[in-house]
Design a protein around this nucleic acid. Sequence first.
RNA 1: GGCCACGUGGCGGAGUGGUGACGCAGCGGACUGCAAAUCCGCGUACCCCGGUUCAAUUCCGGGCGUGGCCUCCA
Length: 439
Amino acid sequence: MDLKLYDTLSREKRVFQPIDPARVRMYVCGPTVYDYAHIGNARPVIVFDVLYRMLRQIYGADHVIYVRNITDVDDKINARAAERGISIGELTRTTYENFKNDVKALGCLPPTVEPRATEHITEMKTLIERLVASGHAYVADGHVLFDVPSMPDYGRLSNRSLDEMIAGARVEVAPYKRDPQDFVLWKPSKPGEPSWPSPSGIAEQGRPGWHIECSAMSWKHLGETFDIHGGGIDLVFPHHENEIAQSRCSFHTPFMAHTWMHNGFLQVEGEKMSKSLGNFFTIHDLLQDWPGEVLRFNMLRTHYRQPIDWTLKGLEESYATLRHLMGEGTSAAPQFAPGVIEALSDDLNTPKAIAELHALHARGESEALAGSLAALGFTQRPRSRREVDKTQVEALVAQRLAARKVKDFAESDRIRDALTAMGVILKDSKDGTTWEVAP
RNA sequence: GGCCACGUGGCGGAGUGGUGACGCAGCGGACUGCAAAUCCGCGUACCCCGGUUCAAUUCCGGGCGUGGCCUCCA
């Protein structure tokens, strides 16, 4: 069965054909490690994890390379470290550890490689030197800038012509730029900022611009060209556009990645997530109240390219649905059932895949269901975070059973009400009474 | 202002040029001492206006609405 993926560059769904099926290569833009990642950041992580799992099933686990970078040099990092009075190294290290734990709780597999920007300064400088040598970049006032007009088809990914961008420019243009759209590859470091010896004959120390790191790391770990490049839709311009410019002009290739994939944005309760509206949630915050599987499921209920409205109601539904689907927690080896992989093969149609899970459930195909759930990253039935005293509950359940036996229903219902108040839900059947903790 | 998405029943959310997915909620029934859970069954939709067509929710054009990018934010 063909895997079809929507490509932002060509604006169409296309059959995915790896450049080398023995070595399928995917690059996804990862976090800037200055603070806890928010729930919007979790979307690409989860979406591309599903794609990673699919690719592993299709091409074999050893034939897929998934690179997700860590941006550990950035103005926000510098500012935050200074604010907290800790070193940049300490900030990026602890933030990354938190990120890793959060993402693991969301059921995401670790990528094959998680390269750090600061460990690829050499590669960045090599690219910069190449771009300067080939006339695609120039040195000005201690900076190295990419010469955008030197690339005739710049702007194809975001569908912007050079003229449009000049017309739309509303930011003050730095005086050292030859063209308003030229972007920074390397810039001087101020005292106290991280710095490295500069490329291209610049005497003072400096640091890389934002975009160059992804060109450098994808090159190092995947090669000059590769199969899939992913990220949030907000990265289309300027970030990915500039990556393409850097990589293609460095290597003189007609493309950087075959398929460009971008996930849609997330809103919270119908509003833009922002700290001022008080609806800003980190993954870490949400994990205090919800099992990671529920957050993951909630994310996959919506197709990745659609906007998603993150709501409490949605989370409650996801919790109930997942518990329903996972029954008593049957486990199986990860294996997508045919209907599920078919849905996913159509540009990662996860809502349709979930409908298939319901169909498997209805048909009682528990092995296929459990295998598909596991393949999608759901291995544990979500459990309530509520704490109950198990001994006390068991005692009350036994008392209630005794009362029912002698048909003392008033007492029986009183005990049930008491248990309900404690957050315990009873389930009577002819085989006896079981109980579970309410969400 | 420019570019780009999206707009489906009470809610979430697929999909299709012509028999109205799926889930949640709701309603009816079975089961139960009564409930819950479970099982069976039921209803309601395709933003607006044109156009193409035998036929449009699905294609085309316009409008309205929401969101994103154009400011190193997924």
